[in-house]
């Protein structure tokens, strides 16, 4: 199946104090896309646009082949949505919710649901009100996963979870990837998790996409180059340097297009070349773009 699961082109959404602008995003089947951005950058807004819960002011959105938001009823048949601040209906048990979802989705896999309930250490008799945050996330994830949706949209699924719960949750939604027809779009602050499980990563800041690339590419391209320049020497003009910090003789260069060629240009004063983890790449990337936009 060649059709993308999510296609957004030039999407704009204006609010009083915030505008999401020129947003383009693609998600192919079989892929995990990590969506990273500071608070208020527009991650939740983007995910809600994908679900059809908000309508864009401009641009096109297609999810599972349906134009959004008009096609949301059909699209949501095949989308599992879990959000860190989503709650079950009060005054009803988990078991009731399972029956409720099962009656709406014929694809409900009761066997898998039973496995998940055991794995997540939940009980059907538990009342929605008595669930902790971690249990709530696991419960809503269970309700989404047992339907075996082709697309999983997760909004901060692990924020606020203890390390054990985080591991359980991630393992479970990674399981979706056994099938190369299913995909995941998830937004998270947790750059460690994003770095580990994403195939592609999109950075968003202040309503704009800052960068989008496959993960290995990001990790390959970004480096910190530590240079020690004796007094009287200067560095030649160098391409693709997005950051520079001077500390006397010691200079730290940040590049987003590392190559041996670049290293050669820097010359013999290189002390050390450091890889950057996703968090460092993200911060450097955002800072660089804010500077470029004069912010």
């Amino acid at each position: 199946m060649n059709d993308k699961h999510i296609e957004m082109r030039g999407v704009r959404k204006t609010y009083k104090f915030f505008t999401l602008d020129d947003l383009s995003l693609d998600l192919a089947p079989g892929e995990v896309m990590g969506f990273v951005g500071p608070n208020g950058a527009g991650k939740s807004t983007t995910l809600r646009l994908a679900l059809g819960l908000i309508a864009p002011d401009a641009g096109e959105i297609r999810v599972m082949g349906h134009a959004m938001p008009d096609g949301q009823a059909a699209a949501k048949r095949d989308i599992g949505y879990v959000s860190g601040d989503m709650r079950l209906l009060p005054h009803a048990t988990l078991g009731w919710h399972m029956d409720f979802v099962k009656s709406i989705y014929p694809e409900w896999d009761g066997g898998y649901a039973a496995t998940l309930i055991k794995r997540f250490n939940l009980r059907p008799e538990q009342n929605a009100r008595s669930l902790s945050l971690g249990e709530h996330v696991k419960a809503t994830l269970l309700l989404a996963l047992a339907r075996r949706p082709r697309l999983l949209i997760l909004d901060e699924p692990t924020t606020g979870l203890d390390p054990v719960a985080r591991h359980e949750v991630i393992s479970e939604f990674m399981d979706v990837l056994r099938d190369d027809n299913r995909s995941i779009l998830f937004s998270s602050h947790n750059t460690v998790d994003v770095e580990r499980i994403s195939d592609r990563i999109t950075f968003i800041d202040r309503g704009r996409i800052v960068d989008c690339s496959n993960k290995e590419d990001f990790l390959d391209r970004w480096r910190r180059i530590h240079v020690q320049l004796p007094a009287g020497t200067t560095l030649p003009s160098l391409p693709n340097i997005v950051g520079r910090v001077n500390d006397g003789q010691f200079i730290t260069l940040t590049t987003n297009q590392f190559s041996e060629g670049l290293l050669a240009l820097v010359g013999s004063h290189v002390r050390d070349v450091q890889r950057m983890n996703l968090e460092e790449i993200f911060v450097a990337n955002v800072m660089h773009h804010r500077e470029a936009r004069g912010q």
Partner: peptide, 8 residues
Amino acid sequence: VALNVSVI
């Protein structure tokens, strides 16, 4: 899936 690492 076993290692919780991206396919890529």
